[in-house]
């Protein structure tokens, strides 16, 4: 890679020249691990006594223009995965490729910015993810201040108003503070911040789970419209499978820091392969009083990621588990075109 020193020079260099949207994924995670140390404080020193294996060998890819749904129960590492992709956390092991470039290789500030300009994130809680002391105008202007410091103030302002209109807010909202908005409107502000500098990929971390159903529908529709308008690629994290089904082109099911199954959305529901996905699907209460289901009820709780089970992490709760599941960790394999499963005894 050529060294760049000034802003102008940077604009001229195309960091992603080698990347081909047709054949390569826009984001590619290879064997990603993120372990958090648990330390114990003694009188003077603290020592690490255990590791929380939040993300433990994730393989995942995201193609341009699609929506990948990442689903799993709390503590399975969905959010940590997104935080590592957006460089909010350093991985313990493995790599994250964005348009063919390893984002954790040593790079200049300009190169880093040029990745972040194309990769933005929307957070779960619209109440704590916006600074209560700043006006909406300043909140949405911030990405321009960072990425386009030379832009004239009037230009920034007009762009903020433009983006506000895009997410369904009015001009006068720009001069208000976050506490003056409802949960749904705040999530619109969060989306506007992510969208402001026209990124290609947005990582959405549970964007609708804090909202009421009628408001949730508004936000889901808004995201759908924005995706078409701006040709966006989404990674949509959620724990609600009906929301995931509604928004995603492909779905990845995560359990205890690993991907269990990754497949086009339709196949997840028609040709469910992993026993965990099967149980997850059968656990959802359906809003139709006529459907009486024989439910697979999983025993026990999700094991602690500090000391995950050996072999397949799901085996202690799995109805198909055999001896081998305890000993050998199954690899994520492509059992059908575009259908990846990590299980010794898949259902298909």
């Amino acid at each position: 890679m050529k060294m760049v020193t000034t802003y102008e020079e940077y604009e001229a260099v195309d960091l992603f020249a080698d990347w081909d949207a047709k054949t390569q994924p826009i984001i590619n995670l290879i064997n990603l691990r993120k372990w958090f140390p648990v330390s114990q404080q003694s009188v003077l020193f603290s020592r690490v006594v255990a590791q929380i294996k939040a993300v433990d060998g994730v393989k995942l890819f995201l193609n341009k223009g699609e929506t990948l749904g990442l689903v799993g129960e709390s503590g399975c590492g969905k959010s940590t995965t997104a935080r590592v992709i957006s460089k909010l956390e350093e991985p313990t092991e493995g790599s994250v490729y964005f348009k063919g470039i390893d984002v954790f290789q040593p790079m200049t500030r300009e190169e880093e910015l040029s990745i972040k300009r194309q990769l933005q994130m929307v957070f779960q809680d619209p109440y704590s993810s916006l600074n209560p002391r700043r006006m909406v105008l300043d909140l949405i202007k911030e990405p321009f201040d960072i990425h386009y410091p030379d832009m004239a103030y009037e230009e920034k302002e007009s762009r903020v108003l433009e983006i506000l209109a895009k997410v369904g807010l009015e001009d006068y909202h720009a001069l208000r503070y976050p506490h003056e908005f409802s949960g749904g409107q705040r999530q619109r502000i969060g989306i506007a911040r992510a969208l402001a500098i026209h990124p290609e990929v947005i990582l959405l971390d549970e964007p609708v789970s804090a909202l009421d159903v009628s408001v949730q529908a508004q936000i889901l529709n808004l995201l759908h419209d924005l995706q078409l308008d701006f040709n966006l690629t989404f990674m949509f994290i959620a724990h609600d499978l009906s929301v995931i089904k509604h928004v995603s082109d492909r779905v990845a099911v995560m359990y205890l820091g690993k991907i269990m199954e990754m497949t086009p959305t339709g196949d997840l529901f028609r040709k469910t392969a992993h026993p965990y996905s099967v149980s997850l699907l059968s656990a959802i209460p359906r809003p139709d009083p006529r459907i009486k289901m024989d439910r697979i009820i999983l025993e026990g709780d999700v094991p602690s990621p500090i000391n995950p089970p050996s072999g397949c992490p799901f085996h202690p709760r799995c109805y198909k588990a055999q001896e081998i599941c305890n000993q050998k960790t199954p690899m994520l394999e492509e059992i059908e075109p575009d259908h990846y499963v990590s299980c010794h005894f898949p259902e298909i």
């Binding site: 159903v213 949730q216 529908a217 508004q218 529709n221 089904k245 509604h246 359906r286």
Partner: peptide
């Protein structure tokens, strides 16, 4: 307004 596992729709009716 609730997305359902049975429905295939790209837009939800909203209130």
């Amino acid at each position: 307004s609730i997305p359902s596992l049975e429905k295939d729709k790209t837009r939800l009716e909203t209130i």
